[in-house]
Design a protein around this nucleic acid. Sequence first.
RNA 1: CGGGGCGUAGCUCAGCCUGGUUAGAGUGCCGCGUUUGGGACGCGGAGGUCGCCGGUUCGAAUCCGGCCGCCCCGACCA
Length: 479
Amino acid sequence: MSKTSLPSQSADFPAWYGEVVRQAGLAENSPVRGAMVIKPYGYAIWEAIQRELDDRIKATGHENFYLPLLVPASVLARESELVEGFAPEVAVVTQAGGKELEEPLAVRPTSEALIWSTYARWIQSYRDLPLLYNQWANAVRWELRPRLFLRTSEFLWQEGHTAHETEEEALAETLTILHDVYADTIESVLAIPVLRGRKSAGERFPGAVDTYTLEAMMRDGKALQAATSHYLGQGFPRTYGVRYTGRDGSERHPYATSWGATTRLVGGVVMTHGDDRGLRLPPRVAPQQVVIVPIFGEEDRPAVLEAAAAVADELRAAGVRVRLDDRPDHRPGFKFNEWELKGVPVRVELGARDLASGVATVARRDTGEKREVPLPRVAGAIDGLLMHVQTSLFDAASDERERRTLRDPSGYDEMIEYLREARGFVMAPWCGGSECEGRVKADSTATIRCVPLNDGSPPGRCAVCGQSAVSEAVWAQAY
RNA sequence: CGGGGCGUAGCUCAGCCUGGUUAGAGUGCCGCGUUUGGGACGCGGAGGUCGCCGGUUCGAAUCCGGCCGCCCCGACCA
């Protein structure tokens, strides 16, 4: 662990991000440009996210399966929109077994092509529907500007691919995933507030009829697409020849969805909650929820360690993920800083001074607040404190997003200036035209992140062209 | 691909402009000792094809040419 301190978020947010990811031990660069080594601490956060998502995916009726990494280039090429959308980012294997392959194999940038060419064999009857499958996998997209977790050339994710009898059912599936799987995990577990909405035509997934998205605001005012759920219509089933016999005996194509969430979410946790001292992990994803730092000299060492171990056992028995940091080669101050960098939500300090008065000193990472708790009540107090930290991180992030959301800007110039400086989100009426979307992008580099769902507000006039608006839209600089 | 910057110890970097003993610092690492309530200290030690290739020169980390790689900003994107 280096002693070097972090750059401040306000001075250089990208530098802060890179340093905190490295110094906290989440990940580092690998020999392959854009591909990262995920270290145990970072992987533990991903595992927590995986567990939570997987539980919800299964609770909503889905099963896991697995399809291979390599896809024959010709299979991928059959879907023209997919090809146009991904062609430049696809890595291709041309050699294997010591010789040139007859047909190049694409490393999947996403699995729709292989999935639907497989589903063609699995779906024969309306009785085979719905097909509700998900896979945990990796994918490769040769991005031009990789960043740890946010955009790596290889990333880990889950991708769900479902087939349905009717459009209504497929649309309902798309929204169930958006709300009950993604938004619930991201808000209640990762404590990241999200806007739920639809993508504009220009931002849609290649081949999708509609793309639903969750958009989160990072601490630098930029938007992060946290997860997406696509209604694919019948495009992929048609392209890959998926036909079945319907209830009336006629030949039909199923309606499709696909949806994914990636290791990017780890970066989202870092950039939503982190501060100048390092990570601030929500308790529900923290690999360690509590760290106990014993403070001892030569004589009181056995007594202090014994008391610390007792507290650790009690917390562990209560289901708390706790670590007793009894390393003899570091002093307490070093440990405080290190665990703050790593974002452990609660720290318990226990020294001779505390023991003498029968207390432990409990410090929360999110606010820095310290208080003394009588030893018999430590476990109970911490249980409540962890829940409190979880909600207060979410509330703080929500407040921050509200504070940085400019609603109904007074004029186009104000809107553009706000967007150009990445001060946050702009929520304003939009006519729905791609010309207006393009003009804002040209003037500010910001894009429409989403058209919010359940937007009951009267549309008013488009903030760009002044024509009558069809909806509100949220604009921002994006990751 | 356009614009900027950088390749010297595990990491961060100084040295280069103005060529010249054995290439330095901080941090990290190993050993011993003293320490331990906000990043301890002392002593000892290990660790380098100075990105690569070529050129200039008596002599190159340093000057010249080419190549490779990386980082940041934009276009692309989960």
